[in-house]
Computed example of a mutant assay.
Amino acid sequence: MRIAIVGPTYPYKGGGAQHTTELAHRLSALGHDVVIESWKAQYPGFLYPGRQTISAPEGLPYPKTLRRLDWRRPDGWVTCGRRLRSADLVVFAVLSPVQVPAYLGILYGIAGKTTTVALCHNVLPHERKPYDGPLMKALLKRVDRVLAHSAQQAALAAELTAKPVRVAAMAPHLPSKNAEKSGQVHNNLLFFGIVRPYKGLDLLLRALPDGVGLTVAGEFWGGLEETERLIAELGLGDRVELRPGYVAAEDVPKLFARADALVLPYRNATASQNVWLGHEHGVPVIATRVGALADHITDGVDGLLVEPEDVEGLRKAIERLYADPVGLRSGVRSVDPEPFWSEYTAALLDS
């Protein structure tokens, strides 16, 4: 089968680009002729406050990649669609409604000549704007089918389109780490990734017990000054290290090596790689019961689960961790990606 994936890949960074790349590799390994149609300019800077690209790849780049799409050139979107008429399947990696105008232009060029799928990382953003719903509705009505990463997201998609919606759990797309188990206790926790209000960093700061430190590593999409003020207000300046900015792949192992646990105090979530990321680096994960986070944690074995927006419950979970930090770490196992990818590609290709 000739398959085109439209979405970000290296030199774009982050989970979406990594997923697009790994998906291309996986489909190619199944014997399909796969190309990635990617971007030379994906978003205007004011719509993406973080750093968009990186100089070194996060994993193995996919060789059959075209980087011709440009947010400033709608004529190029239509041209891309005409080029993709010869494909048997076109997969749109949907990370944000900001992508929708370009995707609609590509669909206009395709003109119904091939099967199209919207692969929705999030059907709608966690923090929504008035135009998000109409844009996503316009896209999902024009593709042939939708792939969502959870039943909750599939139900949300079904509110926007009558087209078939399938569900496949997000498959792991992580670099192999093979972390060694350590008996050392660092009295330090890790909050990792893009910092946005729905991820609950403020809750974690309020829950941090005496004597426990915290490293916050990731790009702040606003709120850095508010976070600094909260740290000062809570008297945590000597225990909280802020490392704002994108964390390069080669620096990630060092962060996890000095953490006793990864903490994900999210207010809401869909699918996330971060539980697997923590386990791949040999550390337990404390997370809220939102989205798919709880699906990958066995409470009391390789992590701890708490209710969202429960500061006291989060504090008690951290104290429970430090009652036996080595014991909880001993239950951590790396994820086997093969079963996940087998189910994922089958759901994507199922006509």
Rank of each mutant, 00 (worst) to 15 (best):
V143L: 03
A259N: 08
I297Y: 07
H149S: 05
H121G: 05
P8V: 05
V290Q: 03
P197I: 04
L262S: 04
K13F: 03
G105Y: 03
N122S: 07
K137H: 04
Y198H: 15
M136Q: 14
R128M: 13
R73P: 00
L190D: 02
K137W: 07
L348H: 06
E58Q: 07
I194E: 12
P63M: 09
L205T: 07
E309C: 06
D310L: 07
V6F: 06
R243K: 15
T79S: 14
G16F: 09
G81C: 01
K177Q: 15
S55E: 15
K13C: 03
A217M: 09
P244K: 14
G7W: 04
W71Y: 15
Q153H: 06
P197Q: 02
E226K: 13
A157L: 11
T9I: 02
D336Y: 12
F191E: 03
G109E: 09
D310N: 14
K254F: 08
V275H: 13
G213I: 01
F46L: 11
L349Y: 13
V212E: 02
E225L: 06
Y103M: 15
T53M: 12
H19M: 14
E250W: 05
F220W: 04
N188H: 06
G223F: 06
L119D: 08
P97M: 01
T215L: 01
L208M: 01
L262M: 10
S342D: 12
R243G: 03
L104Y: 00
R289M: 09
A323E: 07
G313T: 12
F220E: 01
S330P: 02
G133N: 02
Q184T: 15
I106R: 00
Q153P: 00
P284E: 10
L304W: 06
L135Y: 03
G105T: 11
R82A: 02
G112E: 12
P253W: 11
R26L: 08
D251V: 08
T114A: 02
E338A: 15
F256C: 08
S86Y: 02
G213W: 00
P209D: 10
T20A: 06
T115Y: 04
G59H: 09
N188L: 02
V311S: 01
H121L: 08
K40A: 04
D336E: 14
E312G: 06
T79V: 08
E312R: 13
P57M: 05
Q52I: 01
K254D: 15
P209S: 10
A347D: 10
A269I: 11
N122R: 00
G109I: 05
L234S: 04
P325C: 04
Y43G: 02
D144A: 04
